[in-house]
Design a protein around this nucleic acid. Structure first.
Lengths: 142, 142
DNA sequence: TCTCGTTGTAACCGAAGCTGTTACAGCGAG
DNA sequence: CTCGCTGTAACAGCTTCGGTTACAACGAGA
């Protein structure tokens, strides 16, 4: 379980909220979401907490508490979900400074930095092509 | 040091080999490469070992041993380097099977799998736009 | 055939991240 | 005031990664 499943958990939770909304149940508790994703409720709360900070979901306290979508599912691109839950970038530069007496060591960091920025943008652009509504639609037709 | 710097190390090593070749020194030892990247020589050997398996570099044993590029640097796109050294994909699906009694749990895995495949292809397409020769050129002009 | 420098790996350590779990304070509708 | 759920801290277990040491394998040259 090395690779990140955070985006998967967040998308699953949002998709489940979208389906519940379509069925007339706006509010779901983290236990209900956790039962579908099949992870611990605390994981769901951590994930939905990130999404709340990004204003993708709202939370209700007190009796009848739970989570609900803050936007229509068609207006939630996966790139927004990625920005909300994903931390460090895909590739890292050197963790120890390269040898600056070597011409390559001096100039390679800005060169690679530009490449990695382009990769990150391409990744977000690809994720932006799909919305939560798309994921829900494709999940139901399977 | 969470994120992967494996691609960075491999590209740095190949770029350094390319510059050495241009200066008339075809063969470099892993100690020489490690001195520029500023990492342990074993890390370099592990990385160059991956690149050798992908036929991007050749190795010479015995006296005057070391590594040399197996292709002109202009014909080594970073996507090939990525394929050679990078292991698991960027995103992971659920590590525990989602609840199959939920409609979302049943259909979301193929839906997300398609999205992640598209992201992976976009990432490789972006990396393919840059070659080792490009990285060397941009490093020297900095 | 012997020497010697380098490659190629295996084994282990420490640090860091992610999931999973328990525990508990905070909140608010009723 | 009660009660259910949120929000978060703290800790354990697992995995990955870089770092390091150690050693067998290899081959050009003497």
């Amino acid at each position: 379980m090395a690779a990140n499943s955070r985006l998967t958990v967040a998308v699953h939770a949002l998709t489940w909220l979208a389906l519940a909304h379509r069925r007339g149940r706006d509010v779901l508790t983290s236990d209900e979401v956790a039962a579908s994703v099949n992870v611990n409720p605390v994981i769901v709360r951590r994930s939905l907490g990130d999404l709340r900070r990004a204003a993708l979901v709202s939370v209700r306290h007190g009796t009848g508490a739970g989570w609900l979508l803050a936007r229509p599912p068609g207006e939630i691109p996966l790139s927004d979900v990625y920005d909300a839950v994903e931390g460090p970038p895909v590739f890292a530069l050197h963790h120890t400074e390269p040898n600056l007496e070597c011409p390559v060591g001096r100039g390679i960091r800005p060169a690679l930095s530009g490449v990695y920025t382009g990769v990150h943008q391409a990744l977000r652009r690809e994720l932006a092509r799909t919305s939560i509504a798309d994921v829900l639609h494709r999940s139901l037709e399977a």
